[in-house]
Simulated assay, not measured.
Amino acid sequence: MNDVALFVNVLRADISAGAARRLGIPCNFVRRHLRQMEEQLRLRLIQRSTWRLSLLAS
């Protein structure tokens, strides 16, 4: 899965579960992949709450 494509789909869906459904992949894969991408970039990209994800202005 392309990092940028996954990231864009998560932002469009506002929640990782919605992005996972749209892409046909497990939700835990989406969350883990986003965390790994943030670790590689050493930058927090997304603000997580119980129900929503939102882009951080960094």
Rank of each mutant, 00 (worst) to 15 (best):
Val30Pro: 02
Arg48Trp: 08
Ser54Cys: 09
Leu45Pro: 08
Gln40Val: 15
Arg42Val: 13
Asn28Thr: 06
Ala5Glu: 11
Leu43Lys: 07
Leu56Arg: 15
Arg31Ile: 00
Gln40Gly: 10
Arg32Leu: 02
Arg48Thr: 03
Met37Gln: 05
Val8Ser: 09
Phe29Ile: 07
Phe29Arg: 02
Gly18His: 06
Val30Ile: 14
Gly24Tyr: 00
Leu6Lys: 06
Arg42Gly: 11
Cys27Met: 02
Ala13Met: 06
Arg42Asp: 15
Leu11Tyr: 03
Val30Cys: 06
Ser54Lys: 09
Pro26Gln: 02
Gly18Gln: 01
Ile15Ser: 11
Ala19Gly: 07
Trp51Met: 08
Ser54Tyr: 10
Arg12Gly: 12
Arg12Asp: 09
Ser58Phe: 14
Arg12Glu: 12
Ala13Val: 04
Met37Thr: 10
Leu45Lys: 01
Met37Ser: 11
Asp3Ile: 04
Val10Pro: 01
Ala19Ile: 02
Arg22Glu: 10
Ser49Lys: 15
Gln40Trp: 04
Ile46Ala: 03
His33Thr: 15
Ile15His: 14
Ser54Trp: 11
Arg35Glu: 01
Cys27Leu: 01
Arg31Trp: 00
Asn9Ser: 15
Arg31Asn: 06
Ala17Gly: 08
Leu53Phe: 08
Ala5Met: 02
Gln40Arg: 15
Asn9His: 10
Val8Asn: 11
Ala57Leu: 07
Arg32Ile: 00
Asp14Cys: 15
Arg32Tyr: 06
Gln47Tyr: 08
Glu38Leu: 07
Val4Ser: 15
Ala13Ser: 14
Ala5Asn: 14
Asn2Lys: 11
Asn9Met: 08
Ala20Cys: 04
Glu39Thr: 03
Leu11Lys: 00
Arg12Gln: 04
Leu53Trp: 09
Asp14Tyr: 09
Arg31Lys: 06
Arg32His: 11
Ile15Phe: 06
Ala20His: 00
Gln36Ser: 05
Ala13Glu: 00
Ile25Trp: 03
Gly24Pro: 01
Ala57Asp: 15
Glu38His: 01
Ala20Asn: 04
Ala17Gln: 10
Cys27Ala: 08
Leu43Ser: 09
Val4Tyr: 09
Ala19Trp: 01
Leu45Phe: 11
Gln47Ile: 13
Ser54Phe: 08
Leu6Pro: 07
Leu23Val: 14
Arg52Lys: 04
Asn28Arg: 04
Arg42Met: 12
Thr50Gly: 07
Gly18Ser: 05
Asp3Phe: 04
Gln47Phe: 06
Leu23Ile: 15
Val10Leu: 13
Asp14Met: 13
Arg21Ile: 03
Ser49Asn: 12
Ile46Ser: 01
Arg21Asp: 14
Arg12Cys: 06
Ala13Ile: 05
Leu23Gln: 09
Glu38Arg: 03
Val4Ile: 11
Leu6Gln: 10
Arg22Gly: 08
Arg21Tyr: 01
Ser54Arg: 12
Arg31Gly: 01
Arg31Tyr: 01
Met1Asn: 12
Leu43Asn: 04
Gln40Phe: 03
Pro26Trp: 12
Glu38Gly: 01
Arg12Pro: 04
Gly18Thr: 12
Arg21Cys: 02
Asp14Glu: 15
Arg44Pro: 00
Gly18Cys: 10
Ala19Leu: 00
Leu45Ile: 14
Arg21Phe: 04
Ile15Asp: 03
Val10Met: 05
Ala57Cys: 14
Ser49Val: 08
Thr50Val: 11
Leu6Ala: 13
Trp51Glu: 12
Arg21Gln: 10
Gly18Glu: 04
Ala19Lys: 02
Glu38Asn: 07
